[in-house]
Design a protein around this nucleic acid. Structure first.
Lengths: 186, 186
DNA sequence: TGCTTTTTTTGACAAATGTCAAAATCGTTA
DNA sequence: TAACGATTTTGACATTTGTCAAAAAAAGCA
């Protein structure tokens, strides 16, 4: 089954007709380490799924890169502003490893939302789930110390620590690389 | 027009039939300052709108209260876990002023989602908009200093500083009350 | 008005984290 | 293997923010 359809189905059922139609609209994309999927200011309104590879999204602030999210195999990927609001992205999305993606355009997605109750529900559930993830992340950032945030990552995304360099992890946790190095030494 | 319907309509059109049906399901509620709408562990699966009053939602961590959100007049209000996932809330919701609310149960909401494409779209758009708000908040917490966060609030929610005590604001910004007092002195 | 309670401010100090520069380590490739 | 570049660690120190206790100010109430 197409990897994107497989992920969509986690949020709700799809009739086989819709599934067939989806298959016609979904495209794939292969990118290399270091490539950008999307830079700040661009409007790339696709919903992606990562079949294989590793992705980061980050802000550019005062000539610094601040990571806010990492995407792994089978993760859903998109930028909120282009995808939900058809507006320029305020984040960058870059590949940290060679990556294979499947995607559907937001235009096609919108058509499905109009024609299919199932797809509309899936779209809603995806957004709802992302709310949950984001609330958890705000909570982590608001109330936990650098050390606690590191332990949270160790527990919840141990693979991240294997595959991602310390500098990237540190900025994701909102701390300096040196502080993270010292925390990790313990 | 019912205040809740008015807010829903900001996200999409509603047929007059659906509007009539909604009117039959929406109830109202008056609460006093200090009352709780919802405590940690409870499942109160309603979607509320604040007609008049002021609301906070907060976590209890190590016998401390950490505010994560304030709700003002005409704001949409609900707890993600009960509303989206029918699971116990991990947050508390309390009134900081006498407050009048309108609400619909998530069961009724789900029925509308099934029967009405428009309502389903509105539900999706609400979740999508909340994603945007939450991303902005994570970003603020991850990359800004205490002082920058205070200035952000000053610019984006000046009314909050008028109506909410300093201690509550400080915890919302993720800083101590003393630090906020010193920042404000400048 | 005067009293009580709550909220805010202040001071002294401690703890956490950041910054900068240099050294050490690791990985890749010639 | 040797050499290069990228990543990580370490040290010294500065800055930010937190904590605790007390004082001051403001708000609520009899």
């Amino acid at each position: 089954m197409n990897p994107l359809i497989k992920q969509l189905k986690k949020y709700g059922n799809l009739t086989s007709e819709i599934e067939t139609e989806l298959n016609e609209k979904i495209k794939s994309l292969i990118k290399q380490k270091g490539d950008f999927l999307l830079k700040e200011g661009q409007i790339v309104s696709n919903l992606f799924v990562i079949e294989k590879g590793l992705v980061r999204s980050f802000y550019n602030i005062n000539e610094r890169e601040i990571n806010v999210w990492f995407g792994f195999e089978s993760g859903i990927l998109g930028s909120v502003m282009p995808l939900f609001f058809s507006q320029p992205s305020i984040k960058n999305i870059q590949f940290l490893e060679d990556t294979t993606l499947y995607y559907i355009s937001s235009n096609d997605l919108e058509s499905f939302y109009k024609s299919s109750q199932e797809m509309n529900t899936i779209g809603r559930k995806m957004a709802e789930e992302y709310c949950k993830i984001l609330e958890e992340r705000s909570f982590l950032l608001q109330t936990h110390t650098a050390e606690q945030r590191y332990h949270w990552l160790l527990k919840n995304q141990p693979e991240a620590l294997q595959r991602i360099s310390l500098g990237h992890i540190a900025s994701y946790l909102g701390i300096s690389q040196e502080t993270l190095s010292r925390i990790r030494k313990k």
